[in-house]
């Protein structure tokens, strides 16, 4: 427990000082505290998990109908549903439906992460201490990454736990024994991608609202354009195969597209209809085949590299005019 104020006059501090190499942890912890203290963080996290909540309700209701006998003489609806459900695809749908909310969360947590320091000159406070530019960027990045990862992975883990406990006898673990490991790969990668991009964008401006506008603009415009190409790729049956492949690849060329593509690759699936039920006769954009690993690596690596480069060049205590 903290002691009270012992002496109101200045006393010299002669105690131990921490290792300078660990200073980024202080910055990261502050970022985490800031994020978790925001009500919007928890609200958006809740909203982003709507697919899992809806699926759990759907399965519960179906199970209850099954327990009640179902349609007279017909097959058990729950058994039918479990026959159609691919669990890793549900995680993929969790990614797809949560993506937009995670973008909003990224803005809430990360838009001001460096922009605020640029505006208030507080970079001087960080860099005049035993904290290098790399420590600063690493700390700021972790301060966005950790809460974002928490918001992304928590609903998926809860869904995983629910499904594992409820349907282990129905072959939950047999379907994909490595699903938990895949979850622990998909969400950190997605959170890291968002974190790197927002740290880079935030370092470029002095106002969080500008960082928000730039990031949301890039996200939404690229997403819209990529989705259009995605629709083309599944709508135009007569298109030459090369054009078809190009449109499919281009449909992943956005922030959320790359995250979805990366998720498909890590989860090892091309996707299946939401709730295990194909709605209507129209094409389903979620059924576009997974992109090539090269596209995802180059896309995510390239954008993240650019963002890091921007942050590295912009973060400095002194404006040097050459």
């Amino acid at each position: 427990m903290a002691e009270g104020i012992a002496d109101l006059s200045y006393r010299h501090y002669s105690g131990a000082l921490g290792d300078p190499k660990k200073r980024w942890r202080v910055i990261a912890a502050q970022g985490l505290r800031d994020a978790l203290s925001k009500k919007a963080f928890w609200f958006i996290t809740l909203l982003s998990s709507w697919y899992y909540a809806a699926l759990i309700i759907y399965m519960y209701v179906t199970e209850q109908i099954g327990l009640g006998g179902g349609a007279a003489g017909g097959p058990n609806p729950m058994e039918e549903l479990l026959g159609r459900i691919v669990w890793k695809d549900q995680i993929l749908h969790g990614v797809g439906t949560g993506n937009l909310m995670w973008m909003v969360l990224t803005l809430i947590i990360g838009a001001g992460v460096i922009a605020n320091d640029n505006r208030s000159n507080s970079l001087l406070i960080y860099l005049s201490r035993p904290c290098t530019k790399f420590d600063y960027i690493r700390g700021k990045w972790m301060g966005v990454f950790m809460p974002l990862l928490l918001a992304m992975i928590l609903p998926s883990l809860m869904f995983f736990a629910y499904a594992a406990l409820s349907y282990q006898d129905q072959g939950f673990f047999k379907q994909d024994p490595w699903l938990i490991l895949r979850i622990f790969a998909v969400f950190p990668l997605a959170a890291a991608f968002h974190s790197t991009l927002i740290v880079g964008v935030s370092s470029l401006v002095k106002q969080p609202k500008f960082a928000s506008a730039i990031y949301a603009g890039i996200y939404l415009l690229s997403s819209f354009a990529a989705k259009m190409l995605g629709v083309v790729s599944i709508e135009v049956d007569e298109a030459p195969p090369a054009m078809q492949r190009f449109a499919e690849a281009a449909s992943y060329c956005s922030i959320d597209g790359l995250i979805k593509g990366m998720s498909k690759l890590v989860l090892g699936t091309d996707g299946s209809p939401m709730f295990g039920v194909k709605m209507g006769d129209g094409p389903d954009p979620s059924l576009i085949p997974a992109p090539t690993p090269l596209l995802v690596i180059v896309g995510i690596g390239g954008l993240a590299g650019l963002a890091f480069f921007a942050a590295w060049n912009r973060v400095r205590a002194v404006e040097v005019v050459k």
């Binding site: 800031d34 001001g112 605020n116 320091d117 505006r119 208030s120 000159n121 507080s122 970079l123 001087l124 406070i125 005049s128």
Partner: peptide
Amino acid sequence: PEQDCHIPG
């Protein structure tokens, strides 16, 4: 420092 450098919030 000479200029204001407070961490907002």
